[in-house]
């Protein structure tokens, strides 16, 4: 579980986040949604400690990470996995080497143990046969899957995903979303996903946090989305007039 308490963040004189408090639950896919410029990316970077907040506390279970020094932070990061928007795979390494990198760097496993773990990961993300390809040789969806495999290879307790669907077609998006949800449930991970893809929201939105202009505008799960009369939420999810008509019809049929 990760708890954010009254998070504020300013750049120079511009206040990007104006006090956000929320809880991200364990074993669930927690979503942060909002329009471009709402402060999603900044919020995510604060949560993973790539930036520190101007004010407020962030609790990883019972540890307040805003009070940790650099060394303690590095220890904590062994429990964090992160999937980046552009996958952030290392170009000069193959798929297998990318996934093995954290094992090489941080564990004292034997070669055999590492290889077993890598093979297991490759199976989890369905990439059998691509072991020795380079990131440049595989599709965006496959890159994302390698990114997922790399981020969970050390069994993290917390998983962050920055726009896991950007640049993917709806079908591939769905595969990635379901993969993330499956991993989250099976390993009881606290997963936080930053997205503006409404397909994802309706598919895996077990807890949805809507940001608007640096504030938390709405919290709920995907079933509550339809029924909510929060105008900001409805404008975000059902952006086009067509979708708005569909929603009205669905509500009338109930």
């Amino acid at each position: 579980m990760i708890r954010a308490v009254d998070i504020k963040k300013s750049f120079d004189d511009v206040e990007v986040l104006k006090g956000i408090s929320t809880v991200f639950e364990k074993g669930k896919t927690n979503l942060i949604i909002g329009r471009s410029g709402a402060g999603k990316t900044v919020f995510l970077k604060l949560l993973v400690s790539l930036m520190s907040p101007t004010d407020g506390d962030i609790w990883y279970d019972d540890v307040n990470i805003t009070t940790l020094n650099k060394r303690e932070l590095i220890d904590l990061r062994k429990d964090i996995g992160m999937l980046f928007q552009g996958s952030a795979l290392f170009d000069s390494m193959t798929v297998e080497e990318n996934i093995r990198f954290p094992l090489d760097m941080f564990t004292k496993k034997t070669k055999k143990e590492k290889q077993d773990r890598v093979d297991e990961m490759i199976e989890v993300v369905n990439l059998e046969g691509s072991n020795n390809k380079y990131p440049g040789e595989i599709s965006g969806g496959m890159q994302k899957r390698v990114g997922i495999a790399r981020s969970i290879v050390l069994n993290p307790k917390y998983l962050f995903c920055d726009e896991p669907n950007s640049g993917l077609d709806p079908k591939t998006s769905l595969v990635i979303d379901e993969l993330i949800q499956k991993i989250t449930r099976e390993n009881k991970i606290t997963t936080i996903i930053n997205t503006h893809d409404m397909n994802s929201v309706m598919e895996i939105g077990e807890k949805i946090n809507l940001l608007h202009q640096g504030r938390l505008a709405w919290v709920g799960n995907k079933d509550e989305v339809l029924e909510s009369d929060n105008e900001l939420l409805q404008n975000f999810i059902f952006a086009s007039p067509f979708l708005q008509r569909l929603r009205k019809r669905a509500m009338n049929n109930k």
Binding site: R77, A88, L154
Partner: peptide, 18 residues
């Protein structure tokens, strides 16, 4: 610079690499 722009440096940082 390319690693910085493609968030690979952030990825390493998150893993706990200096």
């Amino acid at each position: 610079g390319g690693m910085r722009q493609k968030e690979q440096i952030d990825a390493l940082e998150i893993m706990g690499v200096n």
